[in-house]
Design a binder for these strands. Structure first.
Lengths: 240, 240
DNA sequence: AGCAGCGATTGACACAGGTCAATGCGCGGG
DNA sequence: CCCGCGCATTGACCTGTGTCAATCGCTGCT
């Protein structure tokens, strides 16, 4: 455990005028709030650290808080009765998650959250945030916009899972993760371990490996560890 | 086109003190509104009829309104480039749809809407509803709750598509549509044509047919046209 | 240096579910 | 009454993707 983590564990509540404070303050779910309103909320925000592999919460747990990721990466997953896991999303620095159940009656987490690298998160009590929205339509609208965007993403995910095959889903993923593009070529950086990417795409690691192999053999791309060079977007796109 | 349809086409705006007015007034997205506020909104609500097979809007169309279904059934679907269709949901009497994009920046419909039986719908302008939420946190909260529930449903759908197989999905569907249950037995009424159910479950009609056959052969259930008698919920559930 | 362990790759094989095609069946229209 | 059409069923076959198992190569620890 490094020095920073040690510190936050010793001071589990948000402090004003720290870099952390400014970070979350800049998030669009909070940036619209009056300074003193946010300060009031900050008192209730807990800072927590998780080591790689630790579980933040399980699917079905009662949801009384939502989270902001300060450092690290958190995976949100579904687990079937027979132990199969499907990673729905991976949340990295500067993003919130589970904010969508702030307003649910049935306030159970629909997914399990696990740290896939050492992480620091801020835990925001639903009730506190909800109270503060009571007389702030502006913040309400922001949250609505946020949740609707999530919903749209989930619909797109359903589309990928149903009307697209594994190859198409991989193509979409690659195109979404282009770091640099140049005419018909592009560079993609894989920011996650391959087995996690595989699960996000709802395929096995073996299948992902074979797909990349097939695309390499077809001359569409070249794989160099975590870097992928796409030689022909035109030939990749038809599967998008 | 029957007489009722004729009439609503002739009077395309909502009239107070009609059964239609009371119906939509009772919907939870509107029931919380002050009477005069709702009356103001009602002026902007258009009444429209669609014959079976008609399209209300295509995926990608600019979304300036959302809908309430007065009579009939509307299917929401995704269509892949190569023409494959996946029905995401079927909306029947008394429910709204597309209300989730009221607050989206990118206000394009993420799905295509088609009437699968002759239908009457009310079209509510997003802008009008949005204005009215400006100073009504209560209504805001209701919408938030609504959208969050949708989101949760979509997550569950993703779960079904990934960690469950076709047989499990069918079992879930049957259990969700039980009309009467008695100890270990149950009666299920299929409210939709089989090919629509198949698409909702993301299988082909052939597969659905075979699954029902297999379950019949296993003595788990009996199919009598649109009525299904489940003889052993205990043997159906393991796939749930 | 050597070993343990995890992630990635590859091959052989299995199987769920899709595709294609033929047949049956019920219903509405001429 | 019969014809045609859309929905459902059934069979034969195919294929994408999962499963199982072996191997390889890192990385980090002792």
């Amino acid at each position: 455990m490094n020095r920073l983590t040690r510190e936050v564990l010793d001071f589990p509540c948000m402090e004003k005028d720290t870099p952390q404070y400014d970070n979350i303050r800049g998030h669009y779910l909070f940036s619209g709030l009056e300074e003193e309103v946010f300060d009031g909320l900050a008192k209730d925000i807990a800072v927590e650290s998780f080591e790689k592999g630790e579980i933040l919460f399980h699917r079905g747990d009662v949801a009384s808080d939502f989270y902001y990721v300060e450092t690290g990466q958190i995976e949100l997953s579904l687990i079937s009765p027979d132990g199969q896991k499907k990673i729905v999303e991976v949340i990295a620095h500067g993003r919130t998650f589970a904010e969508a159940i702030v307003f649910m009656r049935e306030s159970k987490f629909p997914v399990t959250a696990e740290a896939i690298s050492n992480s620091v998160v801020f835990r925001i009590p639903n009730a506190a945030y909800r109270n503060l929205l009571q007389d702030n339509t502006n913040a309400c609208m922001r949250l609505l916009n946020d949740v609707c965007r999530h919903l749209h993403q989930r619909v797109q995910e359903i589309e990928r899972l149903t009307v697209q095959n594994a190859r198409s889903r991989l193509a979409s993923y690659l195109i979404d993760h282009i770091v640099e593009t140049n005419d018909d070529e592009a560079t993609v950086r894989l920011d996650l371990p391959k087995h996690i990417i595989a699960s996000r795409l709802s395929v096995t690691p073996e299948t992902l490996s074979r797909l990349l192999r097939a695309m390499t053999d077809d001359g569409i791309l070249t794989v160099d560890d975590r870097l992928i060079f796409v030689h022909s977007l035109a030939r990749l796109r038809p599967y998008d």
